[in-house]
């Protein structure tokens, strides 16, 4: 490794050297996968939020004169067993799933960053207590807990569901942040700040968190996809979003049994789900490469 580093070109010292932000953006755009992913995600968001205005049909209103119709000019994605428009339902479900995914990713990443950085920086009992909590929460697959609690939350709606998902989704990230903090804490710039008399929380805010931010950004991105998958899985088994609300998960649950005969009831929702998560993962991968200064895609 040292020999390779030895030959690395000297750092740019000209005044025109690009800032870090621009550098990341350039590298991100250079990665075709990430660009494609970003475009797909944007289009899906557009579809989810503009879609309901494109169709005259309401997602909830049944129409007993048009039952299980295949896709047509009138009903783009066909209709279901009680004549509801599948397109209207799908975009509505997509919207809910996306919002849930985003919120869960945001909340759980915040929690993970905070807990991980504190555990790592303060060490001692704070660290041990927090890590015991992490281990405790990791013992049960989160699905078990969410499924047990979910009947109680019937009235609280999907926001409670978001909180629940976020609450069981931060532990592994927190572990990683903690171990990164442990090594950052011994880094000389953090030591320097300590010896200058900078207060602990200020050090966490100004030195630790910015230096784990690449990881957190990547992780948050991937978590959006993961949260959407959890949401659909739980909703599929009736533990997540509940009727009359729809999400991709409830749509899949409703369409499963009829999939072999009436494929439009199942495959539109399934396709959008896979497409969205795939696009998110592509962005995450591109971000990983762009933010990691050691990775270099340009050398074959």
């Amino acid at each position: 490794m040292t020999a390779v580093l030895d030959t690395a070109p000297a750092e740019p010292k000209s005044p025109a050297a690009p800032g870090r932000g621009r550098l990341v953006l350039t590298r991100l755009l250079a990665a075709r996968g990430a660009t494609a992913g970003a475009v797909i995600v944007l289009l899906l968001f557009l579809l989810a939020f503009a879609g309901p205005y494109l169709t005259p049909w309401d997602y909830a209103t049944p129409n007993y004169t048009a039952i299980r119709q295949p896709p047509s000019a009138e009903h783009w994605f066909g209709t279901n067993g009680i004549g509801q428009d599948v397109f209207a339902q799908t975009v509505r479900g997509l919207q809910k799933s996306l919002v849930i995914g985003l919120l869960v990713a945001l909340l759980s990443t915040l929690l993970a960053g905070l807990v991980g950085a504190c555990a790592g920086y303060f060490g001692g009992w704070a660290d041990r207590a927090l890590m015991f909590l992490v281990d405790l929460l990791l013992i049960f697959p989160s699905f078990l807990i969410i499924a047990i609690v979910s009947p109680k939350l019937k009235g609280a709606g999907w926001l409670a569901f978001v909180l629940l998902l976020a609450l069981f989704n931060w532990m592994i990230t927190a572990r990683v942040v903690r171990s990164m903090t442990l090594s950052l804490r011994e880094r000389e710039f953090v030591r320097a700040a300590r010896y200058m008399g900078v207060a602990p929380f200020r050090i966490i805010l100004r030195h630790i968190l910015p230096n784990v931010s690449s990881f957190l950004i990547i992780d948050a991105t991937v978590t959006v996809g993961g949260a959407v998958m959890s949401e659909t899985a739980l909703s599929y088994f009736g533990f997540g979003v509940r009727p009359p609300d729809v999400s991709l998960g409830t749509l899949l649950a409703a369409g499963t049994d009829q999939a072999p005969v009436f494929p439009w009831l199942f495959y539109f929702a399934a396709g959008l789900l896979v497409l969205f998560v795939l696009a998110i993962n592509l962005i995450g991968d591109g971000l990983r490469d762009a933010l990691d200064p050691t990775s270099d895609r340009s050398t074959p």
Binding site: R187, E188, F189, R191, A192, Y195, M196, G197, R206, H207, P210, N211, S213
Partner: peptide
Amino acid sequence: RRAVQIVFQDPMASLDPR
């Protein structure tokens, strides 16, 4: 804290890259 200041060995590690 003002009167005593430190300069570390590795100039890359002692400056916050961010």
